[in-house]
């Protein structure tokens, strides 16, 4: 159609209702496959777990008991002990993993001979299966036959009981220094600290690689400018590397904390897989029974699925709360490269 001026008028676009609906639905359709997977394998199990936790559920569904399982678990001193052990485990692993990971990354970032070999050797523990690591390190720390105690005895020292020692690390240090440690401040057992050492050894390679990735993002000009301004290595680290790596640090601390809260394999294997003398996991005397191991024990050994699920839901909320707290508190201190340009 032409108007009077002879200019072809563009007809108004009127899409069909079906096409309009399709256009509207398109983003959701794109999201659907991922959302379906997320719902089926992540959200649904959480909701279903919550449903189970409200029942007296053994191997098969039982009667509805409301919040009874939650009341029982919150009244169980062993649950609180297991949470304390979990916090100890997080505190003795995550900061060390971050610190050592950053240190190794900075060292490996420099031009040193055989750099790739070093990078590979730091990463190798991370790709080794945890069960195998647990068995081997269990031998290394064996009180009677372990290589570490062999060396200590050879040097005339008194061999620690490592994985057999339920006494708190601060109490042991206090004894060594002749200082009396008050009740409640004993710290994690030597057995748990021993497992933490192996955990750090396992994960430090992962942290190193992620930090190395972060380091490569730093523009070379910044280092050159700092050099011209006369900054020494420490000041370069303090004022350039540390702030620029802060988003990586936040990411690793959140991921590391969640991972530590969900740890079970290494602890289970190194404490004798439920055979460690006490007849249950968490040996010695429950001092290595972290929250997930407590849940595992109630689920698999005692077959109290409803009760175990109540523990799992509580742990889920604890992890969620701590992750949000970390993001909120540490997020304020994170510096993003390019921000404020």
């Amino acid at each position: 159609m032409q108007n009077n001026a002879g200019v072809k008028r563009r007809e108004a676009f009127h899409p069909s209702p079906f096409k309009a609906a399709l256009d509207k639905a398109r983003p959701y359709l794109y999201l659907a496959p991922a959302a379906l997977i997320l719902f089926t394998f992540h959200l649904f199990p959480i909701v279903y777990g919550g449903f189970i936790s409200l029942h007296q559920w053994g191997l098969k569904p039982g009667k509805m008991v409301g919040l009874q399982n939650y009341k029982l678990i919150l009244a169980d001193a062993e649950w609180w002990d297991s949470l304390l052990n979990t916090f100890y485990y997080v505190l003795t692993t995550v900061p060390l993993e971050l610190g050592l990971g950053m240190l190794f990354a900075v060292l490996l970032f420099g031009k040193i001979k055989g750099r790739n070999l070093y990078r590979l050797s730091y990463f190798a523990p991370y790709i080794t299966p945890l069960a195998a690591i647990g068995v081997v390190w269990g031998w290394v720390f064996n009180y009677n036959t372990g290589i570490i105690n062999g060396v200590i005895r050879m040097l005339g020292g008194s061999a620690p009981r490592w994985l057999l020692e339920p006494t708190g690390i601060l109490t042991l240090l206090g004894r060594f220094l002749g200082v009396k440690i008050p009740f409640g401040l004993e710290g994690p057992s030597l057995a748990l600290v021993t497992i933490s050492i192996v955990t750090v050894w396992h994960y430090v390679g992962f942290h190193t690689v992620i930090y190395l990735g972060g380091l490569t993002q730093i523009p070379k000009e910044l280092f050159e400018a700092a050099k011209i301004d006369g900054a020494n290595s420490f000041r370069v680290f303090r004022h350039i590397i540390l702030p620029i790596l802060s988003p990586t640090t936040l990411f690793l601390s959140v991921v590391g904390t969640i991972g530590a809260f969900q740890s079970i394999t290494l602890i289970y294997v190194m404490t004798g897989m439920g055979w460690g003398g006490a007849g249950a996991s968490g040996h010695p005397l429950g001092t290595t029974r972290v929250a997930l191991l407590y849940i595992f024990e109630y689920f698999f050994t005692y077959t109290q699925t409803g009760y175990a699920m109540a523990g799992a839901i509580l742990l889920f909320f604890i992890i969620l709360f701590l992750s949000l707290l970390q993001m909120k508190v540490a997020g304020r201190r994170v510096f993003y490269l390019g921000e404020g340009d």
Binding site: N144, L164, G272, G277
Partner: peptide
């Protein structure tokens, strides 16, 4: 006092 099966050793 031993751990696990160490008593055999």
């Amino acid at each position: 006092i031993t751990n696990g099966f160490d008593w055999q050793f």
